Simulated scan of single mutants.
Amino acid sequence: MDPRSEVLLRQAELFGGRTLLAGLPADDLLGQLPEALGWSWHAGDQNLLQARFAGRSDFAVTPPQTDFETAVLFLPKSRELTGYLLDALASHLPGKLLYLVGEKRAGVERAAKQMSIYGTPRKLDSARHCQLWQVRVDQAPAAPELASLAQRYSLQLDDGPLEVVTLPGVFSHGRLDIGSALLLNHLQQLPGGHLLDFGCGAGVLGAVLKRRYPESLVTLLDVDAFAVASSRLTLAANGLEANVINGDGIAAAPSELSAILSNPPFHQGVHTHYQASEDLLRQACRHLRKGGQIRLVANRFLKYPPLIEQHIGTCHTLADADGFRIYQATRA
């Protein structure tokens, strides 16, 4: 059981009714709270929740339309996303109770202060290195428009400017990260066919691929619903069309790909988490056609070349700069 869920269950009498659990972990919490509902934006968690508790968890970037008497937000990493989610939940709960649970080291005390615009937050419990906070929504906000919270910036590329649209919580919100910038300079001579942007984030890489390889089918894949929404906005802002899908890692990718391009994630919340990246390298050959390539950017300290050599083919370093490396391998 997730420590945050354990803290909630110490106060289980507060959540016996129609409770919306926003950003809930994929544990047995819904089993312990039979009247509760889930709201997830992580495809992996949603798949697990759906398998165990079919029909009891929604997957979306906005709250489910179903009625709920109270809500609990599991603190996300992003402060901007926290603000959006709290407003989205509080707008449904005038005069009712809203809860926040999270790890101390993730900044739950700071996030609890964000609830002061609705009423007076109070700490109910502290255990398992987590805290549970409560506020009565005396001043309910208007339901937030997610699109209005998007940040836009323009990249000046050799083939013209690219407009990027990022939503709260998406990796590198409002700016281009160093690793992706390096990878954008090493997209030449890709094999034609079906290209995959794995871990697409705001869709920068996928949009550039579609513009530079217009005859190729391009798919963008991410585990996060807010990333997929951002990617669709970025594509639309540049008049481009591509497939954009949510999925839990490389297993959700199409087959017979001619190339996989990625700035793979290795953080989940405040924790370092390498599973998605390592699965990508171990399973890429199942999705690449013969002669297909994988090309990715990674922090220099990450030991990816041995995995690439073991599971895909000879690993070539195309670039080494600013603490990042570009690796390339071809499936035999």
Rank of each mutant, 00 (worst) to 15 (best):
A111W: 07
D224N: 15
G174L: 11
D279A: 15
S78F: 00
H273K: 14
N185S: 14
L176M: 07
Q151A: 14
R10T: 12
R232N: 04
P144R: 09
V297L: 08
D67V: 13
A225L: 02
L146W: 01
N185H: 12
L29S: 08
Q46Y: 15
L220F: 00
L85Y: 03
R128K: 15
D320E: 15
Y84L: 10
V164R: 01
G17S: 13
L220R: 01
M1Y: 08
V137E: 05
I294E: 08
R105L: 09
Q114N: 07
R122M: 12
P265G: 10
E69I: 03
A251R: 13
A251E: 14
T219G: 02
A142M: 10
A252Y: 01
V244D: 00
A26W: 09
L155T: 11
P305G: 10
L195S: 07
D158Y: 05
I260M: 08
G44W: 01
K104G: 07
G203P: 10
N185L: 10
T234V: 06
Y213R: 06
I312D: 01
G38T: 12
D197M: 08
A54P: 07
G323D: 05
P305Y: 00
I326N: 04
V108Q: 02
P306E: 12
G193Q: 06
N238E: 01
G107N: 07
A236Q: 14
A90C: 11
I250W: 01
H316D: 11
S91V: 06
K290Q: 14
G17Y: 02
D58V: 14
A54K: 10
G160C: 05
L220P: 03
T166D: 04
A237N: 02
A142C: 05
P63E: 09
K210D: 03
P25C: 09
G291Q: 02
L187F: 02
A22K: 00
R4E: 04
G292S: 04
H271L: 13
S40D: 06
R295E: 12
A127D: 11
I178A: 12
A207E: 03
W41F: 15
G193K: 02
A36E: 08
H311V: 01
L89N: 09
A88R: 02
V101K: 09
F266W: 10
P168K: 03
S78G: 08
H273Y: 14
P161N: 13
L240N: 02
R4C: 05
L48H: 06
D58N: 11
L288R: 09
A140M: 06
V137S: 09
Y118C: 11
L240S: 04
C200W: 00
L33P: 01
S126N: 12
G201P: 03
T66E: 15
E103Y: 05
T317M: 12
F171M: 02
E13D: 13
L307M: 09
R56V: 02
A181W: 03
S154M: 12
